[in-house]
Design a protein around this nucleic acid. Structure first.
Length: 474
RNA sequence: GGUCCCAUCGUCUAGCCCGGUCUAGGACGUGGCCCUCUCAAGGCUAAAACACGGGUUCGAAUCCCGUUGGGACCGCCA
């Protein structure tokens, strides 16, 4: 049984990199009919907050990365870690270290200045736990006794076998002098207790892995398989950060991205399946494999994400989009909270806009001229199309429209064509002024669709307003 | 500085393991054309890459070595 976990530390929102790690864990679990566990690594009590735990959960839910167990919290398990630490000490596999953080800091600086490796010198390794120190109120940290000879091999599903020399490995601290456990220890203990079979995480942990393998061995536990995912970088090839734009997953929700589009974008960062670009969730689960995960880091490219989002909007049902666009409509002040809006009509309106909007935000803004009572003219558009040249045409159209009983695309087109033929002009000569009169601008779906959705009453009202606007100019 | 990882169009990638089918394929973006009532969408098309240097071989993007470049880690952070 495959058991994997996503183990974020709640020191920030769910970000792009974390989301992809979660995604790969999720896909691997689902592909293998295994379990996906969410674990909150909150041992750093000074930086972890409840708000961030909520934020991470919110992000996971939005992306529909459903987990099977958890969220488990490490702070609930301090007793467990302490027991394991005591066990290691009694077996001689760990020892008390009386060096103070300040001393260690100083030694690190010295080592750096002299160009020496920054490694703990092991001076407390063979010290007995001395009475006077215990009595003096000095709190000791606990270090893990790392083997100093031989090699460890990390068997990685993505990178293959990576060999480390044991003498490069530090006697790392597994319990702080305040009695709280540290990361490299808690991950191993938790992964052991939770029977994790595959550790799938960011590349930045590859160097921690040999140390963790020794802890597995000390605990007498089988070593899981590892998969270290390449990093996601910003446009300047440095670690993705705020500088590169939005990094929080929920920021993309607010910008009008669809969760499935983000997922699709993220999965293709490092993973591929031939030439296919767009995948359903089912396909992703079916096709996912570490064999197709690349080794090199990838640069986050917002433009491709935008394109994918537009593809997903095109593919979506208008009814679904109607539901999703509502908050954006409210935010933009196009409708007010609680305002009733005919869903069927809204869906029809959205259908005309789907292939023109790259985000829900854009969609909402384009919906404005359908929904609003009044139109605001774009000045340039008004100057170009609402003038003496078009006045007569608009009046003629308005009168004809008034007499039209069936306000359908078919009838509207027939009517427009007859006017155009009568005056021997191009359709554009009529359509553009009408477009400005109805939408306020020069860009919109086909003019007949627009009129049909706006409806007879509003269309005529807006034509009248446009005619008046032309007349008041003179 | 030490250790480890990585290297195909601007970007994401296919190909690499199992050398010839690679004149290196697809996608985003960019340019052009078509469609067209505008804007899109769609179709067609163009420019654009095997980091460099040595080997091995009849033949190397593919195998080996080196160089260069980038990244990660080296905390009583995770």
């Amino acid at each position: 049984m495959v058991r994997v976990r996503f183990a974020p530390s709640p020191t920030g929102h769910l970000h792009i990199g974390g989301a992809r790690t979660a995604l790969f864990n999720y896909l691997f679990a689902r592909h293998n009919n295994g379990k996906f566990i969410l674990r909150i690594e909150d041992t750093d009590r000074t930086r972890s907050t409840e708000e961030y735990i909520e934020a991470i959960i919110e992000g996971m839910k939005w992306l529909k990365l459903e987990w099977d167990e958890g969220p488990l919290r490490q702070t609930d398990r301090f007793d467990v870690y302490r027991n394991y630490v005591n066990k290691l000490i009694s077996e001689g596999k760990a020892y008390y270290c009386y060096c103070t953080p300040e001393e260690l800091e100083q030694r690190r600086k010295d080592a750096l200045a002299q160009g020496k490796p920054q490694k703990y010198d092991g001076r407390c390794r063979n010290k007995e736990r001395v009475q006077e120190v215990e009595g003096s109120g000095v709190q000791a940290a606990v270090r893990f006794k790392m083997p100093q000879e031989g090699q460890v091999v990390v068997d990685d599903l993505i990178r293959g076998k990576v060999v480390f020399e044991n003498n490069q490995l530090d006697d790392l601290i597994i319990m702080r002098s305040d009695g709280t456990p540290t990361y490299n220890f808690t991950v191993v203990v938790d992964d052991v207790d939770m029977d994790i079979t595959h550790v799938i995480r960011g590349d930045d942990h590859l160097n921690n892995t040999p140390k963790q393998i020794h802890i597995y061995k000390a605990l007498g536990h089988e070593i899981p398989l590892f998969a270290h995912l390449p990093m996601i970088l910003g446009s300047d090839k440095t670690r993705l950060s705020k500088r590169h734009g939005a990094t929080s997953v929920m920021a993309y929700k607010e910008m009008g991205y669809l969760p499935d589009a983000l997922i699709n974008y993220l999965v293709r960062l490092g993973w591929s399946y031939g030439d296919q670009e767009v995948f359903t969730r089912e396909e992703l689960i079916k096709y996912f494999s570490f064999e197709n995960v690349g080794k090199s880091s990838a640069i986050f490219n917002p433009e491709k994400l935008l394109w994918l989002n537009s593809q997903y909007i095109i593919k979506s049902n208008p009814e679904e989009l109607a539901q999703m666009v509502l908050p954006f409509l409210e935010n933009a002040g196009i409708i007010h909270k609680g305002q009733k809006i005919d869903r069927q009509w809204l869906s029809r309106a959205i259908k005309t806009l789907q292939e023109r909007a790259k985000t829900l935000l854009e969609l909402a803004n384009s919906l404005r001229y359908y929904i609003a009572e009044d139109v605001q003219y774009d000045e340039k558009a008004k100057a170009k199309f609402l003038n003496e040249k078009s006045r007569g045409l608009l009046i003629e159209l308005k009168d004809a429209l008034n007499a039209l009983s069936d306000f359908s695309i078919y009838e509207l087109e027939k009517l427009f064509k007859s006017i155009v033929e009568k005056h021997v002009i191009k359709l554009g000569n009529l359509a553009q002024p009408v477009r400005v009169a109805i939408t306020g601008g020069t860009e919109s779906p086909g003019i007949f669709e627009v009129l049909e959705i706006v409806g007879k009453e509003k269309t005529i009202k807006r034509l009248e307003k446009a005619i008046k606007a032309i007349e008041s100019e003179n």
